[in-house]
Amino acid sequence: MAQLFKKRANVIARLIIFGGPALFLAICAIIYGFGRSDFWTRVDNPLNQPVPFSHKHHVDGLGIDCRYCHTSVEQSSFAGLPSTETCMTCHSQIWKDAPVLEPVRASFQTGRPIQWTRVYDLPDYVYFDHSIHVNKGVSCATCHGRVDEMPITWKTQPLYMRWCLDCHRHPEENLRPPQEVFDMQYQRPENQSTLGRQLVLENHVHQQGLTDCYTCHR
């Protein structure tokens, strides 16, 4: 009887024994990597919006303060998106016949809000509050990047839990004097660590409990 397994079978067996797990690991690594990639988390990807609203134009070009549109950011958990009326304070007179602004005018007439595509969206089991961060000296730019340079808004942070925790462990590394919170051009000073520790004391930043699970998962 001829041999059932040729010599080649050894190689195949080895390939299966070692290659199988290797392939499995590789697939895992690819899925893991893909899950963290900018493509999947949509970091740095401008999204389609009903109106091509440009922060670069309105913030950098025209010098409008964040709070003109995101009014509640200092008082509430929610920064809030501007109502159609807010756009119309200017666009009732400026570019009032421009076709790009047709959805704004339609919304103003019908009372149906414009449906912006959300850029940042935490899972619902996470509690987040803007007002405390802004009032204690964490800038919009620290979390949202240089919004004033974005012709269409994109995400600069995938919002992993690790990222929140990194700052909650060492908030002094990211604090600014409160009056600089809305300044997009602010440069991190060289003595950040000393300044930061001073700001922690001045603004009564409570570091205790900042990394406890129930702070964010309530």
């Binding site: 149906r112 449906q115 899972p123 619902d124």
Partner: peptide, 21 residues
Amino acid sequence: GMVNQQYLKPLAEEEFFKDGS
């Protein structure tokens, strides 16, 4: 289920109401 929980969020779309908000 936990990521998108079944309650109405501020300013979300909701067809139940006439103005869709």
